[in-house]
Structures are given as structure tokens and as C-alpha cells.
Design a protein around this nucleic acid. Structure first.
Length: 422
RNA sequence: GGAGAGGUCGCAUAGUGGCCGAGUGCCCCGUCUUGGAAAGGCGGUAUACCGCAAGGUAUCGAGGGUUCGAAUCCCUCCCUCUCCGCCA
């Protein structure tokens, strides 16, 4: 949520920001509703002030006749104020609805663009392996080594599901341990969060504002619960309605969770294997920090992601997402794309976002400035440590050997107790 | 799933229709005392919105209702706890 005062003072900037983000929302209507609701609010406050005063007069009045007189007057006023109240509630409801449709605005340095095609590559890191044999794609290797079973998953769950088996599972837990050992030193608290969250929480996190977003989510109507698409959606609201002391910040979490995505808008896209599935496990980092430090924290997250990638020795590129490819609550975003030899291209494996105070405002998460003693909204930053499925794909493809086996990345070997699969 | 109890200002509690935005204790902050501290004394201590301001309004889990007036009464929902059942 944006600050209505900011929208009032910078309507053109907000409109431009929405346009850059490819979000259609009627800012003029919003401002008109805002104006109306404030006008009515003043009238309503006057009614209430009158009523409050009358209440005191009733108590103070000694004479019964006086009391009756005041009470009958108040009955009349009540009818008017009820009308005003109804009017106010109607406008307020529309106003709030519209407010929720306004996305976070991109920073000025975010490249303007429509889709991921307009993202800007910042740098390529690591050397793409040149195979001296005909390299295979990960699924073929994984099926040969009995690491991934799509066929049986289709039988049991349908398309876009997969069983991980044998060393793939060991690799998953190795990655989890590797990440935890790395980031716990940086002050992250580990969390295994709920993966079902209330609809109002999903809304506050800014992930069901658009039709596309909504279509992407799994929802249990009878329980009013959404399945999370990322642990971010469960970690952010942990501190809803809370106030941090300044010294507690940055408050960092690293969460392991399963993630659920409908992939409704991707029919026919990446239908093979486990690249794009309805369910996958992911380790996600999240931070609540001071407003002035969120850019720094965002860079820190990107650096951590790169550090993890470098330790796995996987070639990747860093991408600065364009305005149209950023999520609704995001002001600035980087993706890391990892080299997939069989496709001869980089594929998205990581994403880190600075959501500024957009989520904190909706969730009412603040901190007390130790100098001014004032309450301010925190900023939230999130980032992928590893999306397990896609990381497995990258490992299998980049570490494959001529004989069909797969080497295990050095930093993971100690968790598995061997250096090779197959 | 069945039966019951309950949700008040950071915490603990008081408060059963007007004297309650709300008392008390603890915590915290300031201050006095001290070489310094503890103890003690005194004072302070919610947030949001509207307004240039004075000030006004709202908030006792959430939302509705009754009433001139609701923390207090009624309804719905959410959450917590206890016992029973089921269960990893």
C-alpha cells in the first residue's frame, strides 16, 4: 500500500509508476474518493462530537425534563448521522478497494519495459562448461539415475508434479544444510513456516491484487486459506501489527518451505520435467529493515545469492528486472538466471526484491526510531536462497559426465558422503 | 468432531450501561538523591485520522446490532486455553 498523502501530493508520479508497472488503476477516481471521504468524515466527526457532548449533558442534567429534552433531540440527530455514516461507509469501502489495487512504484533506476524480454543483464559470472561429449538434458540423466519420476507423479497427481528420489532427495537436504550453515552466520533465524495463510494476509502481502495473481494461487474456500507460492508470504506477516525496537533491525529470517503455484498462465510452457511445477521446495530469505537501509539490504541479499551460486560453481547471470516484470509489491528486483546447457540459455533460479514499506504498511509493521522516538514503517526485502527443483536441474546439467553419472558439487559432498551419483 | 472457559493500554490485572481512552502493579523513559549504582521520591509513558491551530474523532480480538449513551447487553466471525474423541 502506498501512503495516501504521497498519492495526493504526487498524482502524476503515481500514474507514471502504475503505467511502468503495467497496472491499470484509476488514480483520479481514487483521489476523488479520498476527497469525498475526508469531507464526509468531517461532517461525521461533528455529529459524533455533538452526541458525545449530549451524553455528558444528559449525565449532568439534574432535571428529568431537561434530560428527556436532550434525549429526544439526540434521536433526531441520530437519523441524520446514520445517513451520513452509511454514505461514508460506502465511499470508504470503494476507496479501500481501490487503494489495494495500487502497486508499489518502481525506483527511478528500474529499467522501463513490458516483459522479461526487457530485463537488463548486469553481468555474467562463471564459465559455461564445454562438453567434450554430447550432453544430455537433466531429465534424461535424472530418469536414467532414478532421481526424478514424472510418469508416476502424473499417475498420482497429474501434470506438473514430480517425485524426487534417491540422491535427488539427499541433494535437497544437502542444499538446505549448506544454505543454513552459510546464512546463519549472517544473523538469519531459521524458520519452517505454515504454508497455508489467511486470505487477508495474502492480500496484505500484495499477491492477489491482480486477476493473474489470483489465478496463480491455490485457495481453499471453506477454510478461507491460500497455499503460499513462496515462504515470503508466510514470513512477512509473522510480525503483523508489531513494533520493532530499532536495535532489533535488520530482522532476518531464512525459511524452508514447500511452495505451490497454479501456473495457470503458462499452459504449454515448460511442460517437461520439474522446471515449472505446481509444488516445489524453496529456501527463502527475508528481512525487516530500516527504510534508509533497504537498498543496502537488497544488495546484501543479491551478494549472498551470488555467494551461494559461486560456491556451487554454477555459471549464472544477474538481471535487473524491468518495471513490467516486477511483482506487484516490488520497487526493485534482481533475478539470477543459471546456465542450463541443454537449453543453451540462462533460466531464472533466484529472485530478490525490495518491497520498501509497501507490505509493512498493509501489515502495520513498524519500528521505533531510537532518536526521535517516532514510529516508522519498516522496509521488507526478500530473496531466494535456493529453489530446490531448479537448482537440482542446474546441478545435474552442469555436473553431468560422459558416462551418464553426475558429480556432486564439492561443498555438498560432505552432506551426502560421496562425490558422484551413478 | 463433542463439552466448557476466555480474549482490556509492552506484560500482569481492575473494570457488568454514563464518574472509562480506561485504574493499579511491573517494565520503560526523564529527574532528584549517589563517587557510581541499587533502593527510594517525583514526573512521564498508546496509536491513527481530520485540522494552520485550538481542538475534534476513532480504537478494550474483528464485524454488525440494541441504546440518547457500550470495554460492559445481543448476534456473527476469528483466535487462545481446558477436558473428551481422533491422529503424525
Amino acid at each position: 500500500m502506498l501512503d495516501i498523502k504521497f498519492i495526493r501530493n504526487n498524482p502524476e508520479k503515481v500514474k507514471q509508476g502504475c503505467a511502468k508497472k503495467q497496472v491499470k488503476v484509476d488514480i483520479d477516481l481514487l483521489l476523488e474518493l479520498d476527497k469525498q471521504r475526508r469531507e464526509i468524515m468531517i461532517i461525521l466527526d461533528e455529529f459524533r462530537a455533538k452526541k458525545n457532548k449530549a451524553s455528558k449533558d444528559i449525565v449532568a442534567a439534574k432535571d428529568k425534563k431537561d434530560k428527556k429534552k436532550i434525549i429526544s433531540e439526540m434521536r433526531k440527530i441520530d437519523k441524520q448521522s446514520d445517513k451520513t455514516k452509511k454514505q461514508f461507509q460506502k465511499i470508504e469501502k470503494e476507496y479501500k478497494k481501490l487503494m489495494l489495487l495500487v502497486p508499489n512504484l518502481p525506483f527511478d533506476d528500474v529499467p522501463v519495459g513490458k516483459s522479461d524480454a526487457d530485463n537488463k543483464v548486469l553481468q555474467e559470472v562463471g564459465e559455461k562448461i564445454k562438453f567434450d561429449f554430447k550432453n544430455k538434458d537433466y531429465l534424461e540423466i535424472a530418469e536414467n539415475l532414478d532421481l526424478i519420476d514424472i510418469k508416476r507423479a502424473a499417475k498420482v497427481s497429474g501434470s506438473r508434479f514430480g517425485y524426487l528420489k534417491n540422491e535427488a532427495v539427499l541433494l535437497e537436504f544437502a542444499l538446505v544444510n549448506f544454505v543454513f550453515n552459510t546464512v546463519l552466520k549472517k544473523g538469519f533465524a531459521p524458520v519452517a513456516p505454515p504454508v497455508m495463510i489467511k486470505s487477508e494476509i495474502m492480500e496484505a502481502m500484495g499477491y492477489i491484487a491482480t486477476k493473474e495473481d489470483l489465478a496463480e494461487r491455490y485457495f481453499f474456500e471453506k477454510d478461507n486459506l491460500f497455499l503460499v507460492g513462496t515462504a515470503e508470504q508466510s514470513i512477512g506477516p509473522m510480525h503483523k501489527d508489531e513494533i520493532f525496537a530499532q536495535k532489533e533491525l535488520p530482522k532476518r529470517y531464512v525459511a524452508f518451505s514447500t511452495c505451490f503455484r497454479e501456473e495457470a498462465g503458462s499452459y504449454g510452457k515448460d511442460t517437461r520435467g520439474i522446471l515449472r511445477v505446481h509444488q516445489f521446495d524453496k529456501i527463502e530469505m527475508f528481512s525487516f529493515c530500516e527504510p534508509e537501509k533497504s537498498k543496502e539490504e537488497h544488495e546484501f541479499f543479491l551478494n549472498l545469492e551470488e555467494k551461494l551460486m559461486k560456491e556451487l560453481n554454477l555459471p549464472y547471470q544477474v538481471v535487473k528486472n524491468c518495471s513490467g516484470d516486477m511483482a506487484f509489491p516490488t520497487a526493485s528486483q534482481y533475478d539470477i538466471e543459471t546456465w542450463i546447457p541443454s537449453e543453451n540459455k540462462y533460466r531464472e533460479t533466484h529472485s530478490t526484491s525490495n518491497c520498501t514499506d509497501f507490505q509493512a504498511r498493509r501489515l502495520n509493521i513498524r519500528y521505533k526510531d531510537s532518536k526521535t522516538q517516532k514510529l516508522e514503517f519498516v522496509h521488507t526485502v526478500n530473496g531466494t536462497a535456493f529453489a530446490i527443483g531448479r537448482t537440482l536441474i542446474a546441478i545435474i546439467e552442469n555436473y553431468q559426465q560422459k558416462d551418464g553419472s553426475v558429480l556432486i558439487p564439492k561443498v555438498l559432498q560432505k552432506y551426502i558422503g560421496k562425490n558422484k551419483i551413478g
